[in-house]
């Protein structure tokens, strides 16, 4: 029983990180109708911002973890927002009216650029992620070890997702985002500047990815420039599973993939850890391509 509980906690922690990344994939898809494959690498950059910023922030706050964590988190979110918007302006915007395949291949190019540029700048060797949040052991019995880390991870993810929900559902810019994702021309006719909304989408998506990076580093404290590849792919699968373009769907998909992965690792074999996500992708594409919460959308003529 307690082992199951342990797995559930691990699964939700990992799943909430996938959820944060998946939301970025799904929002960009919703507005621009393409998969931003560089998104997983923005997540990686987020972790590295945490790695490099922490030694500078710590002395400023007198080593207080209560302050350091949120400050570094915010910093990573800001840096990645700028990165995301820059990528969009430089790489994607000039291609907006080209075939979708062009922009998709460009996204893969940006992804490789960040991965190998990261190896050049940060160095290819793994680095140990600093302790940013309160990390003590609450329960330590034979089958169950409960530390504060997963609580911090899950809690932060929930707060950020609620905040996102508020922005998307209750603010003018969030409503404009939903309008643009439904019909760009009609949105322009309302006086909505599409470019502003697209930039805003990248700000939201990239900052959640950055938060994901910080939380991932906190959970698994070894980071390297290629760390974004697998979480990125799994978050993409989560977004497809939940229904691409659907924000709650992405969160749900992330949780399912995270849980499944943890359970497969725990009860079956760690060998299948990565295979299971792709297995799910194949199944969902075969049987319900619109995803769990996605609605079938007729191709517009």
């Amino acid at each position: 029983m307690s082992e199951l509980l342990q797995q559930v906690i691990n699964g939700i922690s990992l799943g909430s990180i996938y959820a944060l990344i998946a939301i970025g994939y799904t929002m960009v898809y919703g507005v621009l109708r393409f998969i931003n494959f560089a998104h997983g690498d923005v997540f990686m950059v987020g972790a590295f911002v945490g790695y490099y910023a922490t030694p500078h922030i710590m002395p400023l706050v007198g080593g207080s973890l209560i302050l350091a964590g949120p400050i570094v988190l915010l910093l990573a979110m800001i840096v990645c927002s700028i990165l995301g918007v820059t990528i969009e302006k430089l790489a994607y915007k000039p291609l907006r009216f080209r075939p979708k395949l062009t922009i998709l291949i460009t996204a893969i190019g940006i992804s490789l650029f960040l991965e190998f540029g990261g190896q050049l700048v940060f160095g290819p060797d793994p680095k140990s992620f600093p302790t940013l949040f309160l990390s003590t052991t609450l329960i330590d019995s034979q089958n169950l070890v409960l530390r504060t880390t997963p609580i911090v991870v899950i809690g932060t993810a929930i707060i950020l997702m609620l905040l996102l929900r508020f922005i998307v559902m209750n603010t003018k810019l969030g409503t404009a985002m939903r309008a643009v994702s439904f019909n760009q021309q009609a949105a322009s006719l309302m006086g909505i500047n599409i470019n502003t909304v697209i930039s805003f989408t990248f700000v939201l998506g990239s900052s959640l990815a950055a938060a994901g990076g910080i939380l991932y580093g906190t959970l698994y404290p070894s980071i390297n420039p290629l760390m974004g590849i697998f979480p990125g792919l799994k978050a993409f699968i989560s977004a497809v599973l939940g229904g691409i373009g659907n924000i709650p769907g992405a969160a749900l998909g992330g949780l399912i993939i995270g849980m499944t992965e943890t359970f497969v690792t725990g009860y079956l074999s760690p060998t299948y850890r990565d295979a299971i996500a792709f297995g799910i992708l194949i199944l969902i594409l075969l049987f319900k391509p619109s995803g769990i919460l996605g609605r079938h959308e007729a191709e517009k003529v």
Partner: peptide
């Protein structure tokens, strides 16, 4: 033309 109402709003 075609109204273009935001169906999701």
């Amino acid at each position: 033309e075609g109204r273009m109402i935001f169906s999701n709003l």
